[in-house]
Design a protein around this nucleic acid. Structure first.
Length: 897
DNA sequence: GCGGACTGCTTACCT
DNA sequence: ACAGGTAAGCAGTCCGCG
């Protein structure tokens, strides 16, 4: 092994010469015979219980290939399908008619046809369709032209006597997904292989728990209970340890001159023109390695690297790349940050440049992804990019999608700052820089007891997708997938999106916002002022509850039965089926109930072990992510079961429910000071009043309305979605106020925070009066500091920070201020793209904005900042009976002038 | 030619 | 590539104005 310990590293000069001669060949040794069968190509006769983590189609074998993670040896094993399962699609054209299509019969991928019975959920009846079976999945629908789904004609001339339009179903489903559905497999669960047969491995302790869970739902229907049981089985199962390695590479691009400054461009992974000079591999097993390419240009003295990190030198780039590949194959899971688009893609092309043969590169190159042949690649960039994950799993803790930002926000570790170009770094600097990236990447998956890995596993189980897919795709795919799975399991035809739309595509309400498809939620006009003793009641998962209780789904909305037409959705012409149960209603309903009644309470149950509690917490947050999107997807055109009236009905029932609740509260003599979508803010309610409202809701609406939080007091202006509440423990809940928004200058935010601190101390209306005096002082002080231009050496504190929604060139309709500033930056040679954060200040001279890094104190337009200070504080001042102008000492006359 | 009223665009937020 | 509703600031447009 060409490993050099720290000591050797310090004596690097000698080592360099030695390797330069090529005497030590780490890579060749590692790929030798004894290694290979150990690390992959494992096709066992019998396999101890292993987690089914991924599935693909193997073109050479012509069958599904599953990857199983065996948690004891911590290795990936393969299993190839041996049941003869084949890809197919369905059509309503009869075998006789299909027989007449020459291009189908002679298609190289065509196998045979057979008749099958299915239930058509749109027609609500049994149908017989033809299953067109193919030899390989690409023959069905994988290619742009000439695949079976296009060959089966869409229209027939009248003379043929074929009346109904010809349809093809289920042709766009990925083969491995189809395989999972048909065999009712559960990704993320334990399987074993007995005599070459794949079978579920049971888990004893979770069966005990499932009995307990079922008892919670004794009143529910048998069908519903089955779903509770199915989900509980998937979710109770504990998670294994995932042995994994984080990878990060550094590439050396040439220097270019820009405005006299030497910089470089980000290397293009498709071209892979420049050398890979460093790679870091940070293993969950504690193995930490830095692989460096020897370069003549580097001379350096004594260096420091933590002693548990091994540093290895490679005399050529080929050997370095081989070294990386060998390690990647050693681990069942490989973690990167943007490896799909950079690290793995670069390595793939770079290896090709060096003439590596296809089987020497363990990377499967896709258009948007880079998977690994023998194991699994999780790209954390894709996972953290997911909006639902950002908001609901990590409550917006990170906003900029860079490794530095996510690292800082979630684990408190930043990237190492580079002060010079890559080419001028010493080995130590380079090693440190690269290593830190790999460290952050791995630690993003280990923090909070491996939260991220567990979350991905939980989502894998719910969505029934391979781990690689679930970590890369959005919530609408997850939801579509478990719904598709259920269709197959129950012998239901999976409808084509256009058929749902033709039959049930209309909405009837008018949205308040221009350009939206239907009316959404209600926001109650707040009662301005300071209110003491406020109880906030809300419906736990309102929309999922509605979907469950009102039996909503694409099948049941606007169904074909006369008898159901009187089962109207309030404020709409829509009706809901009384005969059939919607799949969405059952599946989403069961998930909701499990979260609210089991996982959420268990995640806080101190009698459980910390380990179990943490698992339950993962489950409840995975469920939260799914449930929060379960209504929205029906209104999203990109969703494959897109059904606008389902979304519209959900929102409409939501409005009905909240309106009824407000009415009930007022009738009980409680003042409702605010409400938004699923919540009502009650002023000074008695416990019995709260109790009676909760009871009423349960009985009349069939939904749980509970106290969510209590405020010692709350402050409302007349603005909706804008308020401040102080909890009994003194912590402050700020919603929607400008003072809390991320884009405002620190200088203003600081003043706002001071006010918040002061408000936290207020316990009674009397104390409020003295707090008001202090708040006046806070505002006054900020105002005077602005007037004195007293904010520091640089205008940094005054910078607004706004995200670029798109590349600057693509703002064609207007040019907002941050875009003006961005353009100025571009002129200086910065490359800007969507998602970049622009920091700018307001100045007196013409475009009135300037990027903060180009601005000086003297140019600042103080009046603009005073105006901004005013509008920020106005949101709370008027509620407290204060006036900004009066505070800063303007007389009425001065204000008028 | 200029200012006010208006609409539209954009971002950040709430549920 | 889940929805709609709200606030705020600014860009751009229209219209009146002897």
């Amino acid at each position: 092994m060409a490993k050099t310990s720290l000591d050797a590293f310090l004596r690097s000069a000698d080592t360099l010469v030695e390797k330069g001669k090529g005497e030590s060949k780490p890579s060749e040794e590692k790929t030798s015979e004894e290694k290979k069968p150990q690390s992959f190509d494992r096709i066992p006769q019998n396999l101890p219980p292993s987690y089914f983590v991924s599935a693909t189609y193997d073109g050479k074998k012509g069958s599904a290939r599953l990857k199983l993670y065996e948690p004891k040896s911590e290795k990936i094993y393969y299993w190839y399908d041996n049941t003869g399962h084949k890809p197919y699609c369905l059509t309503n054209l009869s075998p006789i008619e299909l027989e007449k299509i020459d291009r189908l019969k002679t298609h190289h991928g065509f196998d045979h046809v057979e008749l099958v019975k299915k239930y058509d959920p749109l027609l609500d009846r049994q149908v017989t369709v033809t299953k067109v079976v193919a030899k390989d999945p690409l023959a069905i629908g994988g290619r742009p032209v000439g695949c079976i789904r296009d060959i089966i004609p869409q229209e027939y001339p009248k003379t043929t006597g074929i009346e109904q339009p010809v349809k093809v179903w289920e042709a766009a489903i990925k083969y491995y997904q189809c395989y999972i559905y048909d065999r009712d497999l559960a990704p993320g669960m334990l399987y074993k292989i007995d005599n070459q047969k794949l079978a579920r491995a049971q888990h004893e302790t979770s069966e005990e728990t499932i009995k307990k869970i079922l008892e919670l739902f004794r009143d529910e229907s048998k069908e519903f209970l089955q779903y509770i049981k199915m989900w509980a089985r998937l979710l109770e199962y504990p998670a294994p340890k995932f042995r994994r390695v984080a990878l990060d590479i550094e590439v050396l691009p040439p220097l270019i001159e820009r405005e006299g400054i030497k910089t470089s461009r980000v290397p293009d992974p498709r071209e892979a023109e420049h050398p890979v000079i460093c790679a870091s591999l940070y293993g969950s097993d504690g193995k930490k390695r830095i692989l460096l390419l020897e370069r003549d240009s580097i001379r350096e003295g004594i260096v420091k690297i933590p002693s548990d990190v091994s540093v290895e030198y490679y005399s050529s780039e080929e050997k370095l790349i081989t070294g990386i590949f060998d390690t990647l194959c050693d681990y069942p899971f490989v973690i990167t940050f943007n490896g799909d688009d950079f690290d793995l893609r670069y390595l793939f092309h770079r290896a090709q440049k060096f003439g590596f043969r296809r089987n020497q590169i363990p990377i499967e190159l896709g258009r948007r992804v880079c998977l690994l042949t023998h194991n699994l690649h999780i790209d954390l960039y894709k996972f953290f990019f997911n909006k639902s994950i950002q908001i609901y799993a990590f409550s917006q803790k990170y906003r900029d999608l860079t490794l530095d930002n996510v690292g800082k926000a979630l684990i408190g570790v930043s990237k190492i700052e580079l002060t010079k170009p890559m080419s001028q770094l010493t080995y130590t600097e380079l090693a440190h820089y690269c290593f830190r990236d790999a460290e952050i990447t791995l630690r993003l998956t280990t923090f909070d007891d491996n939260l991220v890995m567990k979350l991905i596993l939980a989502l894998t189980r719910i969505s029934r997708m391979p781990m690689e897919d679930v970590s890369r795709q959005g919530v609408s795919r997850w939801i579509r997938n478990f719904l598709y799975h259920e269709h197959r399991r129950r012998g239901m035809l999976i409808p084509n999106a256009e058929d749902i739309l033709t039959l049930k595509g209309t909405t009837a309400t008018k949205a308040i916002i221009k350009g939206k498809k239907y009316k959404g939620a209600i926001v109650v006009e707040p009662v301005p002022g300071v209110h003491f003793n406020v109880a906030v009641m809300d419906f736990a998962s309102l929309y999922p509850s509605i979907i469950k209780v009102y039996n909503l789904g694409y099948q049941t909305i606007l169904c074909s039965h006369e008898e159901c037409k009187d089962n109207k959705v309030p404020e709409t012409p829509h009706w809901v089926c009384k005969r059939q149960q919607a799949l969405e209603s059952l599946l989403v309903g069961a998930l909701r109930d499990l979260r609210v009644r089991w996982y959420k309470p268990k995640s806080k149950d101190k009698t459980l072990s910390a380990e179990l509690r943490s698992w339950y917490d993962v489950i409840q947050s995975a469920l939260k992510v799914i449930l929060n999107a379960s209504y929205g997807v029906f209104g999203a055109e990109s969703f494959d079961l897109y059904c606008p009236p389902v979304a519209e009905a959900t929102a409409s029932i939501g409005r009905h429910v909240i309106t009824q609740s407000i009415k009930k509260a007022r009738e009980s003599g409680i003042e409702v000071i605010y409400g938004d979508t699923d919540s009502i803010f009650l002023k000074g309610p008695s416990p019995s009043q709260i109790n009676s409202i909760a009871k009423w809701s349960e009985k009349e609406l069939g939904m749980e309305l509970d106290v969510d939080k209590i405020y010692r007091y709350s402050v409302f202006s007349s603005r909706k979605k804008n308020y401040l509440g102080v909890f009994p423990d003194g912590s402050v809940d700020v919603k929607g106020l400008t003072g809390k928004k991320r884009h405002i200058p620190m200088f203003i935010k600081e003043a706002f925070d001071q006010m918040e601190e002061r408000l936290a101390q207020v316990k009674s209306p009397i104390e409020f009066e003295t707090a008001k005096k202090d708040i006046r002082k806070i505002v006054q002080d900020r105002y005077l500091r602005l007037k004195r231009r007293d904010w520091g050496e640089t205008p940094d504190e005054l910078a607004f920070q706004v995200v670029l929604g798109k590349t600057p060139e693509r703002y064609t309709k207007t040019t907002p201020q941050h875009v003006k500033a961005a353009t100025l930056l571009q002129k200086r040679g910065y490359e800007l793209k969507a998602g970049d954060l622009i920091s700018f200040v307001k100045v007196t001279k013409d475009p009135h904005v300037k990027p903060v890094e180009l601005a000086s104190n003297s140019e600042i337009d103080v009046d603009k900042y005073v105006a901004y200070l005013q509008s920020t504080f106005d949101q709370v001042l008027d509620a407290m009976g204060l006036n900004f102008n009066e505070i800063i000492g303007l007389t009425k006359l001065e204000r008028f002038m």
